[in-house]
Amino acid sequence: MAENFENLQCWQVCNELKIYIKEKILPSLPKTERFELYSQLLRASRSATANIAEGWGRYHYKENIKFLFNARGSIAEILDHSLEAKAWDYISDEKLQYVRLQTESCIKLINGYIKYLRRQAEEKQ
């Protein structure tokens, strides 16, 4: 188990995605989307890392896994909102492709961490 949630690779990659969303995607959105798509993307990106951190802080495998499922859902939400941003021509194909690759990476890492926690829980029983 990591000493701190910041040491978890899944948190690190999700945090990189959050920073990318804030620096590259959100400024591309029009002001008319400020309280709609902008807000949704910002909250989903924050939710992913926050859920990983909160799950890590619970110290119980089942609770931790529950929060990881929430984080995985937030990552999927980021991709969905990014697809919408592309559909409205708010972002480029390149930005969407980067988000797509990062969300895939985040989900793979979260799934791997879930498998690890399940194995740990089984070993303790």
Rank of each mutant, 00 (worst) to 15 (best):
E104C: 09
N4G: 07
I107G: 08
A53S: 10
R118M: 14
S28N: 05
R118K: 15
Y61Q: 13
A71S: 10
N111C: 04
L68N: 04
Q120L: 10
N4Y: 08
Q125H: 13
Q125S: 15
Y20F: 14
C14V: 09
R58N: 03
L29W: 00
C106K: 02
C10G: 09
H60L: 14
E33K: 00
V99F: 13
R43E: 05
M1Y: 05
Q120S: 13
L26N: 00
G55I: 00
H81E: 04
S82G: 05
A76N: 13
E3R: 03
Y116K: 02
E33G: 08
L29Q: 03
E123P: 02
R118W: 04
K115M: 07
L29I: 04
Y113S: 06
L17D: 00
K124A: 10
A85H: 03
C106A: 06
D80E: 11
N51C: 07
R119G: 09
A50V: 03
E33N: 03
D80M: 15
N15M: 14
A50D: 12
K22F: 11
Y116C: 02
E6I: 14
A71E: 11
W56H: 15
I110Y: 06
S74Y: 10
L83R: 12
V99R: 08
K108T: 03
K115R: 15
G55V: 03
E16G: 06
N15S: 14
L83C: 06
N64A: 10
K22H: 13
E23V: 04
M1R: 00
Q9H: 12
Y59N: 10
T32Y: 10
K108A: 12
L37A: 03
T32P: 07
